[in-house]
Design a protein around this nucleic acid. Structure first.
Lengths: 106, 106
DNA sequence: CTGCTAAATCGGACTTATACGATATAATGG
DNA sequence: CCATTATATCGTATAAGTCCGATTTAGCAG
């Protein structure tokens, strides 16, 4: 027999927060993007070309992945002449960690 | 000119840990699965049918998503008669939070 | 303005993920 | 053993993601 259990607690997460979270999870659901993020953790301020040299994929592919990481909030890119310099987006990452902590109060 | 910056730090993450992390990110990269997880946070111990009633998708689809969430480590299912009772996998979630903290030491 | 370097975007083949209905499995009650 | 209830799995159509080479955009030096 199906008995719907009572909610044991509430969970407030606005739809924009949920969308943000979903985007951040989606961005890191790809092994190449996780590798790029790992590389940027140990090599902050790298340019696209450094990342291309470090990975076995084409330049255009890396560029697409960087866009996903930028759009989702994990990294920030700043133009330095003809190159683009990438760093972690510390504010968004701190937000992510905080939200995960709030959602999973174990 | 491309100058490869020095690594500013190390990041030790075994390949099995990385795979685990990737699987957990991948699992929550889908809006239906995020919704299921949210429901299980507020309604621990629900059975599949409760989740099916709560979402606008077919039973077979929910069952597939539950499998992904189980395989990735977010939830645990225990058989209770003909039904399956789902809860968060607190140990794995704690591991996830810890790893995220270790990786992003901001 | 021209040439050079770095990165981004486009177009397309190919792979993977998601959804559904139909069917199979599994426990329980009569 | 048969019917019922609850899930899980299968087959498959459609949608989304990934990759590459080719091209475009953008900054800078001469």
């Amino acid at each position: 027999m199906k008995t719907i259990p009572e909610a044991c607690c509430t969970l407030d997460l606005s739809s924009s927060e949920q969308e943000m979270l979903l985007g951040m999870f989606k961005a890191l659901s790809n092994p190449v993007r996780l590798e790029i993020l790992k590389f940027l953790i140990t090599h902050p301020g790298c340019i696209t070309g450094n990342i291309v040299d470090h990975l076995p994929v084409a330049q255009s592919t890396v560029s697409q992945h960087l866009k996903v990481l930028r759009d989702s909030g994990w990294i920030q890119g700043t133009t330095k002449g003809p190159a683009t310099c990438y760093c972690l987006d510390e504010e968004k990452i701190a937000w992510f960690k905080r939200k995960i902590g709030e959602i999973f109060l174990l």
